[in-house]
Nucleic acid binder design. Structure first.
Lengths: 209, 209, 209, 209
DNA sequence: GATGAATGAGCATTCATTCAT
DNA sequence: GATGAATGAATGCTCATTCAT
């Protein structure tokens, strides 16, 4: 019901309505990035947006709906950035390299947003207390790696993988990218290019025959 | 002064006092693991421990002091588990293998605690809103990997690393382990042994000459 | 910064906002006067005002800011009452008489407020535990007496005073007025006019040549 | 019932018991004088006395009973100090002078205790919220002044007083002494002798024919 | 559409008091 | 006698949410 409502709503949304929501989400991202999830009250977000608290409630059913937009928007932007870059490559090896490069570049260019996503997602729980972890979303983010690996195995340029060892490989690549995010948080002046080069090397070596 | 007080206090603490504190910390870990950091109020923790809220305040100066124990205890247990296993190995290659194996086994055996540490640490902030991230602690956890890498480079069994590429390698190994934790959360029936074997393979390939 | 904020805020405050704050302060005064400082919790004050506890927090940053208004408002009302009455007199002797008369009348007409001020001020402490006692405020309240005394000495209608003996005189007059307040609390049906007459006599005798 | 209990108890009290109680009351006085009534929890008092909180509960039925001792002890000490000094004087004029001198000296020598009494008494309330103000105690403290005034009137050395104007006189003298206490709090280096001399002068002038 | 005002539940913390040892 | 441990009520405060204007 909820989902249906939302998609209905989105279709009915005026341009102005969309812009207002986008502005509020942007402020939510900034607020979470700067003061952290726990301190990011609607009051704080409203203050940053120079609007009244009520406006947020007007545009979003509740805080949850607002926070949900953060990973959603992130995923859309991420996909728009990553997909064409991978598709521009032919060989699985180059695709993997570009996947890593594009991800690190995207993270570097969207630090606040990435950070807000981490905070949001790691605090999101189902009603019974289980981490929701946007499982769908996480799987979606693994898909390109898995398809690259599959292609590379089929073409014989990668070493042999079972289905589950391919998954570990995919998860490890993904984890390495997330680890980069954390390191970037700890050390904002990190040499991103060098980090990228090293990750490419590591996963080139660990996937090749 | 605060720190000094604490260590003084610890020396003065009776056995019973220590046991009570340990019990409360254990309940805090369980609570955070089950309902998440945000919902883990002192009331919730007390309810789980079947004690009154006041008892927690009696044994801990404040919530912060209680939550601090979670990573502290974890790190001590982790060290006690990991260190002898690594030291039992001679070659850097075997050490790296054992480091990965031991970490995954330790995580598997301490799922709740690991999880509570992640939640606690990722919600801990300094007064100005910056993630504290227990930087010291994080670095401490990298030390064994870095020293294994150094040894392997010197002995010529690993490929060449610059100082900073060794750091990326260390961070990637660490991230892979953290990624395992997340995957374990998502999928509790994960085949840990296989995951371990794959990670060992990946990092064997990516470090060797 | 705090102070500046406050005055800025006050200028920005709408009429409704001011009225609401005034209403809450009024209820705080009544509550303190009736149940005493220690029992005057925000909950009690809210109950008396028939509003929710949150409303107070909405209009005042914290309890301290609310309680601060009590002496502030009192002092302003006191000044508005006393000053013109003194200025309407020419001779120091008459001024002193009117000062006493006006103060006792003002106290009589504002019993609850006076009482709340005493409670508030005598419970206000700096962070290091020292009584704050609104020293400025106390001194401000002595000023008119001191200036009357100075005038009377210069004009030769009062006996000779050194600087510090004039201060003792001023303090004693002030104390006598405060003593009247206490007596009024103990005995609400006190004959105020007679008390006034006696005080005027006492200080007429003790100041004249 | 309560009162009876208490007097029964006092008769049964061993010397050791009395000493323990006296020590605790002394610490309560110090604590109130230093941190104020509101912060003077049993925990604070116990800490200062280097005993456990439970000890206080053991020796006193409740906090109220402990705090009651503060004005009681004060009054006894005050009486023991004041009475012989007044009785050593013959003339009402000298008695009044000595009353003022002795009070100021006593306050000066027992600053903490005086202060604790003020705090205690001004926070003491009956169950219906009325200030208790130790009415008995306050009247008791006025008695010597009133009897001095009566004597002076009868002997014709003081000006004429009606019954109620004599009371105002007594209250004013008492208030002046209390005002001295406050001034001493604000300004601990006050010249007590000069202050005494001035008060004596003021009340000599205001009582004489 | 937008806002300020109000709500009430929930939070961490303090504290007088009780009690078994 | 004395203590440490435990209790639970109360407090000031925060905040997501609701609502009249």
């Amino acid at each position: 019901m909820n989902k249906k409502n939302k998609s209905t709503k989105q279709k009915e949304m005026s341009f102005i309505e969309k812009a207002r929501r986008a502005q509020i989400v942007k402020c939510a991202i900034e607020t979470i990035a700067e003061v952290g999830y726990a301190q990011a009250s609607l009051g704080q977000i409203a203050k940053r947006a120079n609007i009244s608290k009520g406006v947020i409630s007007y545009h979003f059913a509740n805080k949850e709906e607002l926070l949900e937009q953060i990973p959603i928007e992130y995923y859309l932007a991420w996909q728009a950035y990553i997909t064409p870059r991978i598709e521009a490559q032919k060989s699985p090896k180059e695709k993997l390299q570009v996947y890593i490069e594009a991800n690190l570049a995207f993270i570097d260019e969207n630090r606040q947003h990435v950070f807000a996503v981490i905070e949001t997602v790691s605090n999101k729980r189902t009603d019974d207390g289980k981490l929701q972890f946007a499982a769908d979303h996480d799987e979606a983010i693994l898909l390109p790696i898995e398809s690259i690996l599959t292609q590379g195995i089929q073409e014989g340029v990668f070493r042999e993988f079972t289905k589950s060892s391919a998954r570990v490989m995919a998860l490890t690549i993904r984890s390495a990218i997330d680890g980069f995010t954390l390191e970037l948080t700890r050390n904002p002046h990190l040499d991103v290019q060098e980090y990228t080069r090293e990750l490419v090397t590591i996963f080139d070596k660990s996937t090749k025959k």
